[in-house]
Every structure is written in C-alpha cells, then in structure tokens.
Write a protein that binds this DNA or RNA. Structure first.
Lengths: 236, 236
DNA sequence: CGCTAATTTGAGTGACTTCAAGCACAGTGG
DNA sequence: CCACTGTGCTTGAAGTCACTCAAATTAGCG
C-alpha cells in the first residue's frame, strides 16, 4: 500500500484523496500517478518550520497528517496567524503561482507529514487540466473571501467578539471530540495571534467565558459548553 | 473607433487593452472579439450600486473608466472598504468562479463606465486558454496576498500607522497630479472605512499630519508634502 | 542511571496607561 | 439646507508592565 523511496515511507496521494476537499480530485489517474511519483515527503515535529516568509519556494506542500499554522510576522516580531492547514490542504501554492516570495511562514503545530511537489508540476496540471485549474481557482477565491471577511471582523468587532468567533472557527475546522473538546491545542499566545490581540487579553476573556459557563478550560483543552451563547457573542 | 450597440456607445476592449494590468492580454484576437461582442456596457453615476453583497451575480464587470469601491457591510451597517477598482480592473469574478453570492457591495465613487461579461464566457475562456487561466489565478493570488498583508496591518498597527499606509496605498493606486495631489477624492468617512476606524479619528489624524507638514489639505484634496515621513509613520 | 536542582515556558493576576471610540455640538460650503 | 468637516470632552476597551505560580525541560551530579 505504501511504497518506499529514498529510504523513507512515502504515503500515496490516494490516502489523502479520501479527504473531501482534496484539491487533486479532478486529476486523471495518470496525472495523479505523476504527482505521486514526483513528490517528496518529509516528517516534521512540532515547532519545525516548513518554509519562511520572504524566502523563495519552488514548489508547494500538501499536508498528509498533522497541523500547520501559517503566519505573517508583523512589527516587533509579533505573529499574525492567517490560517491553519490540515490533512489534504495545500500550502505555498500561492507563491508558486504568482511567482513571488513566500508571504507567510508555516510552522508545525502538531507533528506532521507533508509531501512536496515541484512548482512545474502544478503549472503543467493547470495547463493540461482545466477542471483542476477551476478547482484551484475556486480554492483561491474561497480563501480570498474568507480573508475579506476577516478584515471586516478585525476592523469592526471587539476583541471579545473576535475571540468567540475564532473559537467557533476552530470548532468548524478541527471539530470537537465526544466530550465537546476542541481537537486542537493552541497556546494562549497562539490564540492571541489569531485574534490579533495581547496574550493577557485572551487569558482574561477566556476566564470570563468560563465564568459565563460558555466554555470549560483544562490547560489547553477548551470544552465548548454553550455554542449558541458563543455565536451570540461573536455576532453571527 | 467606437461601435454603437443597444442605442448606446460601447467602448472596445482594445481601449482597455492598453492598460498594463489588463486581465485579457493573453486572449487570442478571436477570443477578445468574442468577449467584445458578447459584452454589455453601462454608465453609472457616483453613488450608484453595481451589485450588492449577498446577491447572486451571473457575470462580472470590467471597469472601463471611473472608480468603484468594493466594501463589506459589518455590524450596525458600517462599511469596510476592501479595495478599489479602476480602468482595466475586473470585479465580481470571484463570485462567478466560486459560484457564491457576492461577498461585497460595489458602488461608484467617480462616474464610471463598466462592461458586463457573462459568467459562462469567463468559464469558457479558462477552459480554452490556460495562459488566461494562469493570468486570472495570479490576479487572485495577488489579491489574496494583499488581503493577508492587510489583516496583519489592521491587527497590529495603530490607527495612525494605518492611515499613513492607506495614504501611501492610494498614492500608488491612483497617483498624484503635477502638484502632488492625490488623484482620488474620498470623504473622511470613506477614508475611515478603509482604515477601519471612526470618522473623527481620521479627521484628527489628518490635521496632525498637516501640522507635521506631511500633507496639505484643501477639502478632499490631499497633497503629499513629505513622502518619506509618511512611510516612516506607516512603518514601511 | 536515577534523582534532584536549575532553568525555561506558559498561564494567570493586578495596576496603570493610553489609544481611540462615542457623543454633542459648531461651523462651512456646495 | 443638508451633508460633510472639525473640535472638545468623556469614557471604556484593551495594551503594557511587572510579577507570581505551576508545569515541563534540561542540566547537573553522586
């Protein structure tokens, strides 16, 4: 089921293919085989950097397992987390397409396996397969729409509202386990870097949410107690 | 030079073609002719709405002249201006591609002429012309990159820094005339809706900039006196 | 090796400061 | 004359600073 190449076990694209949002779902079997054959694959531990803002990248990555955060570094080094990538998501493709330097840094949050695919392969696929091109374009448009929403939120909502919204977003992206606990573990600082606020503010607001019986906290585990309540606070 | 159709003078795409960032530059002459023939064209006065957030649009628009603002409506109706569109820019294509409702409203800021092109035409072009598909994808990626930058700025910079940055952005987008005056006329409220702040704050900060000899104000005309100074304030 | 000691990292609190929003009102000019 | 601009004043949300405490890592050492 899994081939061995470069003294390393490389997962087949087929595995990711199960993921419903998989970008390669419109490829012909031959095209997928090509991608599968050409790609490299590496394991990264939490904290590892996949690529860094401002560096040139000649290919893109597809997340096979684990979680990666994408962030920009603002003034005095403060991170602004733009999005997360999980199984089936691709990262770095923007830089390949627009032929620009990477505009974000991507760092592993949960131990991850990523496949690396040459930029040329992507360009070729776009030229050969219009359905794939459409798929990719829709992905970009979706991300663009989300970015625009986020701009509006961050410009107009309070920190409190935004934190509630981020919790809901995390719930949608990473789901809850059977105990309603968010299936992603972030530090308070990382949460702050998503919301765009100070770490202390996140800590204070989380305690407020806890006192208001909206959530429950055990370390980094966040249990959602009152989803409608959070939605109300988030204004959505 | 200009044909008459529907009792209305329709400018040829050739005119826009001169614009260097024109999206259609990779079309074959026949494809361009097709677009040119199929398109509709309308004149809009300042204040007119081209399309509205949440509405379905089945095609997209190409700005032939004038200026259009694209904004989202946030809580209690406050506008958040996402971007402007001027000659050669296309708007609404995102919704066509992702087959979603419009996520912004677009309203005319300076009397404008816009061409309307069917969504199908766009899809066909993408399928027939990979170079055009690449071009469009690069446009989307560029917008996405800018949106991500903006998220970081708005989350981390002060209103003062952001206002300076917006002035620089306006300068790059709409240029200065021979007297260093910004070639776009916005109300203080519109500026505030770009920066993501209150109108009063913009007014106060503009006066500060004026006192610091960075700019000069005559009504809505903004004259740039000290570009490096503004860049310094904007942190870039 | 195993068991403290030492250091680092993250969570949490309180006091203080400041930036910017909001309100009310006064011009002003197209 | 109404929409826009401009100003003063007040208040509150959120950032900053300074610190404690707990947990987790790493180092040290018999």
């Amino acid at each position: 089921m899994v081939g061995i190449k470069n003294n390393q076990s490389i997962p087949s694209c087929e595995e990711c293919h199960a993921t419903d949002h998989m970008i390669f779902k419109d490829l012909t079997p031959e095209q997928l085989d090509n991608v599968n054959y050409d790609k490299g694959c590496s394991f990264y531990k939490r904290g590892n950097i996949i690529f860094q803002e401002g560096h040139r990248i000649n290919g893109f990555y597809c997340v096979h397992s684990g979680i990666v955060k994408m962030y920009k570094t603002g003034i005095d080094g403060k991170e602004q987390i733009i999005r997360f990538a999980k199984k089936g998501d691709i990262i770095g493709y923007r830089s390949v397409l627009s032929n620009e330097l990477a505009c974000t840094t991507s760092r592993v949050i949960e131990d991850a396996t990523l496949c690396y695919i040459q930029g040329d392969t992507l360009i070729t696929l776009i030229k050969e397969n219009p359905a794939f091109a459409m798929q990719l374009m829709q992905l970009t448009c979706k991300e663009l729409g989300e970015a625009n929403n986020y701009i509006t939120d961050i410009a107009q909502k309070t920190v409190r509202e935004r934190l509630a919204e981020i919790l809901l977003l995390l719930k949608d992206t990473f789901d809850l386990d059977e105990n309603q606990v968010l299936q992603i573990s972030l530090t308070r600082e990382e949460l702050a870097n998503m919301v765009g606020t100070a770490t202390e503010s996140v800590i204070r607001l989380l305690s407020e949410f806890k006192q208001d019986k909206l959530i429950e906290l055990q370390g980094r585990k966040i249990k959602i107690l009152n989803l409608p309540g959070l939605k109300k606070i988030a204004n959505f």
